[in-house]
Design a protein around this nucleic acid. Sequence first.
DNA 1: CTGAATATTCCGGCGACCGTAACATCCGCC
DNA 2: GGCGGATGTTACGGTCGCCGGAATATTCAG
Lengths: 130, 130
Amino acid sequence: MNLPAIYRPPYARGVTTPLQEPTFLILAVLADGPRHGYAVIQEVAALSGGRVQLRPGTLYGALDRLADQGLVTVDREEVVDGRLRRYYGLTDDGADLLAADAERLTSNAAVALSRLRRRGSAARPRPSQA
Amino acid sequence: MNLPAIYRPPYARGVTTPLQEPTFLILAVLADGPRHGYAVIQEVAALSGGRVQLRPGTLYGALDRLADQGLVTVDREEVVDGRLRRYYGLTDDGADLLAADAERLTSNAAVALSRLRRRGSAARPRPSQA
DNA sequence: CTGAATATTCCGGCGACCGTAACATCCGCC
DNA sequence: GGCGGATGTTACGGTCGCCGGAATATTCAG
């Protein structure tokens, strides 16, 4: 079962290779530098145009999972005003995986758009002007 | 609040708006014209470079679901050598959703790559090499 | 003192996908 | 002339990421 090379090297056990959108965006946020959980939620919302509103359960669950997989690590912890802040940072493995997955997204999008254009020759109602 | 318009119009109840990769690729294959299930499996494998090997359960489950959502329809049925062939075709709603999702993928990939580039120039906390 | 924002933890539940087997027909091979 | 493989669909148990919501705790606005 020739696993096609892409999606294997560093992604040890259990790594859901095609990242889902929430996980992908979490890694994307951390690519800019360490962040704590709550900041990730806000930044994901911002750079998805408000489309993706991470739930606490999703975020912290994903962070734990990604830490287990070695894709992120706890950078440091602070206590501000009695509240805990745990900063997570992207590892090199995480950056590699994110880059590979971004490539996958680009490729998939290109394939779909190319085939949609071919389809355009047939009948198609256009209610809105793009 | 401002639910970003994209990802709402035709995607009535239960439509998992961010398409997962198998679903996305199924729609992409059908964008080229009607296909029967088995052909979809092969074509998805081909245009994903062999990375995505659809299981029967995934494929036919997805087709039923997509048909319920009005994103694909049964185009026609043939019996060839006593074996059934059911052809599925993309609806206009399906094409719209696929186009919107391709845009989402492109955008997400761009965001990730841009942030990864920023990361490369600054600090690499994990000295793996270079 | 009530409510919103900050920040994390916990838990039940759902749905897409996986993995595999079954069933049926036709073909190549030995 | 039977065995295995390709074609094509159906069925079902299981896994896992995400959702949805509530709890906890502190600070600041009204």
